[in-house]
């Protein structure tokens, strides 16, 4: 082998090997092997649920509400969720907690409006049976309510109105502080929804009068 060839042979092999390895790695996405980046919360995304009835409605409202709130706060849905989870342990300043509670309330209200607008909000009659199953009511009263025709229930309790009242009535500070306490959380939501149902019915009666 000539001296010139022997001087160039090994470097040429090395350049080919390194270039080949790096090229293959880059071609197969070597520069982009990173964790999933959070989606832009300001871009509307489809929200579905594998749950049924009230649980499905709650999940859809929360997911849309989180997107809306994150968009308002200029963060991602995931970062906001993690911050809210930590806020239960009192990890945030009051001013930040206030901003988050306000953004979340506006987000949930926007979620109601969006679901009402695209027709995905269920009618009140679809949820009455499940609500009565979990409510602690007198048996006779429960039987009477079940006997009310769906059309009457839907006319008396427009879903968007009930939900809007419930969300406005919710103490979100207390709710976020109770995220680790499932029983307290459910009790708080149930109280707000019950009050919203009563307020909505009273409003209907007032409209009739």
């Amino acid at each position: 082998m000539s001296p010139r060839l022997s001087a160039l042979g090994l470097p040429a092999v090395a350049v080919a090997l390194v270039g080949g390895v790096l090229a293959v790695h880059l071609a197969y996405g070597g520069g982009q092997f990173e964790p999933l980046r959070p989606a832009d919360p300001c871009v509307v995304r489809d929200v579905t649920s594998q749950s049924e009835r009230i649980e499905a409605l709650t999940e859809q409202l929360v997911l849309i509400g989180l997107d809306e709130a994150a968009c308002t706060l200029g963060t991602s849905r995931e970062a906001l969720t993690l911050e809210l989870a930590r806020s239960g342990a009192g990890a945030q300043a009051d001013a930040q907690a206030d901003d988050q509670a306000d953004a979340l309330r506006d987000g949930l209200l926007a979620a109601v409006a969006r679901m009402q607008g695209d027709g995905t909000l269920p009618a009140a009659s679809d949820l009455v049976d499940e609500a009565l199953d979990t409510a602690d009511l007198n048996g006779v009263l429960e039987a009477v309510i079940r006997a009310v025709p769906d059309s009457v229930v839907d006319a008396a309790l427009p879903m968007d109105d009930v939900l809007t009242r419930a969300i406005e009535d919710l103490d979100l500070h207390a709710l976020l502080a109770n995220l680790d306490d499932q029983a307290a959380l459910e009790a708080q939501v149930q109280a707000a929804v019950s009050q919203a149902v009563v307020d909505s019915l009273v409003a209907r009666v007032r409209d009739l009068v």
Binding site: E34, P35, L36, R37, P38, A39, S49, Q50, S51, E55, A56, T58, E59, L63, L66, S76, R77, E78, A79, T81, L82
Partner: peptide, 18 residues
């Protein structure tokens, strides 16, 4: 980023909310 990616997957998982 790892926690956010995990949060995104859990939120969007095709599973019942509970």
């Amino acid at each position: 980023p790892a926690q956010e990616a995990i949060t995104a997957l859990v939120l969007d998982a095709p599973m019942p909310a509970q």
